[in-house]
Design a protein around this nucleic acid. Structure first.
Lengths: 146, 146
DNA sequence: CTTGATCCTCTAGTCGCTAGAGGATGTAGG
DNA sequence: CCTACATCCTCTAGCGACTAGAGGATCAAG
């Protein structure tokens, strides 16, 4: 049994993040010392590693909840895990396509800028007039992502 | 001069989003009717179009603020617009690389899953053990983006 | 004169954390 | 034993870029 700081070091998560995951119900509230400090078993550390790995692969916490649920019940069919992974893969692919269109457009805009005053700047001009663009980049205007 | 709903239709922005941009200082508070309704000129509509376009290209509101500032002062050199655009392009490229690594890993995981019970599921197993992965996908664990 | 669309302000929620206040407890050295 | 200093605790608030909803006023058309 180990304190939260050590778990943070072992998993690569930050201490507040581990507490946050507990609050979100992704891990059970662990036992505590007499003074109230959390104590984790290796089993919980592995569970947190699972969460971290799934996050690094871009899964949302809601999906991770479902995946953990499945990992907790190994007798169930894994159809749902498959479905979640495939949907996630599709959204990753879609996002790559979007970003490639942006990359293309940005490259073009930057290349066209000769570096004079803003009045002649192709970047400013392009932003003001969508007709100057090669493509539609009408992508989810909310949730454009970092 | 037109009401906010019409501006929304013309720009493709939603009504609350326009009010939000006003609150954030990206557009000036417009004149109002006697009953307090906002009235926009074509000039403001163009400004909102600029913002929408820049958002669709993935620029953050902070950057858009700087770009608008430059558009308002056409005599200034456009060095800053260039810098912003190049930095943004770099982050787009970096993100594409990250997402490609994810795509690769997800494809591999999904392909390995034979579809039996969760105990034998490669997806669940891979998530629990990073050593099964081809690459490091140790990317910004926060801000993985939508 | 009523109906339904549009507008107003304000608050709170989304997601996945991160930062900070303000305090208690633990450990190591002198 | 005392003092640092690290680590831990809870709680609240903030990030970015909106979105949703409450609760109400106003407008245009029939």
């Amino acid at each position: 049994m180990q304190p939260i700081g050590q778990v943070a070091k072992r998993t690569g998560l930050k201490v507040p993040t581990i507490r946050f995951y507990e609050q979100q119900g992704l891990i059970a509230p662990p036992p505590r010392t007499a003074s109230g400090r959390r104590l984790y078993s290796d089993r919980e550390v592995r569970r947190l590693g699972f969460i971290r790995h799934a996050r690094a692969l871009g899964f949302e916490l809601g999906d991770i909840r479902s995946l953990l649920d499945l990992a907790d019940h190994p007798e169930r069919p894994c159809t749902n895990a498959d479905r979640i992974a495939v949907m996630h893969l599709n959204s990753v692919r879609a996002r790559i396509d979007q970003l490639r269109a942006l990359q293309h457009e940005l490259t073009r805009m930057i290349g066209a800028c000769a570096g004079g005053p803003a009045a002649e700047c192709r970047i400013i001009e392009s932003l003001g007039d969508h007709a100057l663009c090669d493509h539609e980049h009408e992508l989810p205007i909310g949730r454009l992502g970092a």
